[in-house]
Write a protein that binds this DNA or RNA. Structure first.
Lengths: 230, 230
DNA sequence: GTATTATTAGAGTATATACTCTAGGGAGTC
DNA sequence: GACTCCCTAGAGTATATACTCTAATAATAC
């Protein structure tokens, strides 16, 4: 593998593990057992590394959220979107942690991320539209659908931060992908009131599969899971 | 005013304006025109300053979310809770920005914030319960109410970060309290499906007052101030 | 082969940051 | 005056951090 790619890979790994703020370019170089000079031969600065990682993230999510228009949407499609989005969040989880600082430090990133958010919101909106066409949820006025899409986005992008704060002693690294995917339970909660009678039970069943389990949560926030599973 | 209090006040101001990461203890001292030595006479370190500011924040929100149990809850009560919570978020807005780093750096804060989150979730849950008792929303099973409360929390605590990313050129400091309060529109969107027929129109009307408008992006929304000073 | 280009090492630097240390001022008390 | 206590100034420090510079080595082209 090219040194350049190794730098990107190691950076992502270290950022995810320790948080961007706690990872210096010297750390990255040391982790790869290369010199700082070598690192700076491939990247002008730390921001450039982060920006390239963002481009990968963007590409991944854009790929996941590509919506086929040639056939009716299914529950399986919806599940795929949800799973994929949380997979993406997991793989690039450092990103949302220091989002505001990163955007303040890099104008390109700021602009790109803004457009990325817009595309995601549009995609969520379109998914709701297609779910309505497929008879899975009731059709809603555009204004409501837009507000609902935004709420989905807010829940999805904040779920990880919430999980982290719900943990007591463990650090950032102690989250698991499975815990993260319990965010799907929260997203499906948003959809519940709009489900058609024909699909309501099936979605409820699907939702149950993501319900925070005792064993997962007990270490983290015992009193929460008791409430949530009552 | 005591130097100690001035330090807390200036720190909060600078943190809110520039972000905690961009504000050093030397900046704070310089801003107050006192010596670093003086600052460190009053606080052992930067973490201690942040922790004390958090205690103020916690106190404020706990005060706002105290729920009277001696009378039925009203729409005015709900409006008050929403307005208050966003006021609190605004006044201590630096906090959620660097939340994960702050919690990683200070065990006390981590523990306290975790309990604080739990109290907030319990309060939101109780508000839903009381709204149902008052006939404003339909009663829901406890499990659903818990999931809904969590979604409210996620939307509320992530709304500001979203607004920041939605802005194109402006920096952190360019947010306004009025824009922030459009988050109320999003929270009320969550409640919509559960409203009783008797209250549905009134809540819809209330919600309209917080709807994001085009003019809001450039100037403060005049109609919001009326609600704010109920 | 030689010339050129791409890559790498590693020492080094300017700046920033959190924090320390010593000396002393001012106010109250005896 | 002298003593005490609280507060303050300001120079200073150890460490970290992002990044640079030079020289050498490997790869490729001719």
């Amino acid at each position: 593998m090219k040194t350049r790619d190794k730098i990107l890979l190691s950076s992502l790994e270290l950022f995810n593990e320790r948080g961007e703020r706690n990872v210096t370019t010297n750390h990255i170089a040391a982790h790869l057992a290369i010199s700082p000079g070598n690192l700076y031969y491939h990247f002008r600065n730390k921001s450039d590394i982060i920006y390239e990682i963002f481009l990968e993230y963007e590409k991944l999510v854009d790929f996941y959220l590509d919506i086929p228009e040639d056939r009716a949407m299914t529950l399986a499609d919806m599940t795929f979107y949800l799973e994929s989005v949380f997979d993406g969040l997991w793989s690039y989880r450092f990103f949302h942690r220091d989002l505001e600082y990163l955007l303040d430090s890099d104008q390109r990133l700021r602009q790109d991320y803004r457009e990325f958010t817009q595309r995601c919101l549009t995609a969520i909106n379109r998914i709701f539209e297609r779910l309505a066409e497929a008879g899975i949820i009731e059709a809603q006025p555009e204004a409501l659908r837009a507000a609902m899409s935004l709420n989905v986005w807010l829940v999805v992008t904040n779920w990880m931060a919430f999980l982290k704060t719900a943990h007591a002693e463990e650090t950032y690294a102690n989250l698991t992908l499975n815990e993260l995917k319990q965010g799907i339970y929260q997203v499906l909660t948003l959809e519940l009131p709009y489900l058609t009678p024909a699909y309501r039970d099936r979605v409820l069943e699907l939702r149950e599969q993501y319900r925070p389990t005792l064993s997962d949560q007990e270490e983290a926030a015992p009193e929460l899971s008791r409430v949530a599973s009552r």
